[in-house]
Amino acid sequence: MSDRLLVEARGLTKTYPARNGTPPFHAVKGIDFELARGEAFGFLGPNGAGKSSTMRMLAAISPVSSGSLSVLGLDPAGDGPEIRARIGVVPQDDCLDRELTVRENLYVYGRYFGLKKQMINERIVGLLAFAQLEEKADAQVEMLSGGMRRRLTIARSLINEPEILLLDEPTTGLDPQARHVLWERLYRLKHDGVTLIITTHYMDEAEQLCDRLVVMDGGKIVAVGSPRELIETNITREVLELRFPVNAHAQIGERIRDAALGERTEVLPDRVAVYADDGEEALAQVHAMSLEPITALVRRATLEDVFLKLTGRSLID
């Protein structure tokens, strides 16, 4: 493996063995990826795609079933504690010590990494500022809002100054404002040179944060690239979304599909999506067919559309 690569996975699989009559579960079915220092790398996919299982293997807390994985040039099977000492993990649930204060949570976590009290206290000053929690330093975690807890969880994961930060669904369950604050904090980390690995089922999050991402579905990687590349290679520049009365929806959808406007037409349960490089022109053609949609919207194509095309399903069920 070259020095430049922080992570390299080849044919990586994760199989949970059969138990009490349930058959073995193949969560990750042979995936390859690599990650360079300083990258922000994303795993995009719906629930059950195998993202969290992959993250757990990367964090050296779940044994690799087959294939090879190297993290920081080390083998998770033999060098677990050393890998864990050099990475940071933000679990999906905050898993904070709710009875303790913000400061105590950071302190306790630093102790797990064997840091000296004085060093932890020095780092806490910077981390409180990073998490914008200086005012709340001595408040019990119980009293914090969801967004504050998330920021604290991220600050906690930075106490050992990790070389790689793993974030599992970092903004799930947060309100839009709290998400934007969090994204801005993560940009800052990226700017400071921390390598980020993010799982998400939000395409906007993947677009905002990731330099490069893999789209996962059913334990496999279905596409790799930068958000822009994925959109450019898989989908048209624009999408025209049309809504029709419920009783006529399916039939009109068929007509539009047969008319072959743009590159591709997708008849979804609630809307008809026409993929075309010029959405306005496609809309004009719809009008020319003397169809009157209830609503018509032209927008830029997103990763959501890429996912829909590659898997035939939406990201969020």
Binding site: I61, G80, R84, A85, I87, P91, D93, C95, R156, L166
Partner: peptide, 14 residues
């Protein structure tokens, strides 16, 4: 309930 160990297992603690 608290899932405390989910945050501890990824540290060097065995």
């Amino acid at each position: 309930t608290d899932h405390s160990y989910d945050a501890i297992v990824p540290t060097p603690l065995s």
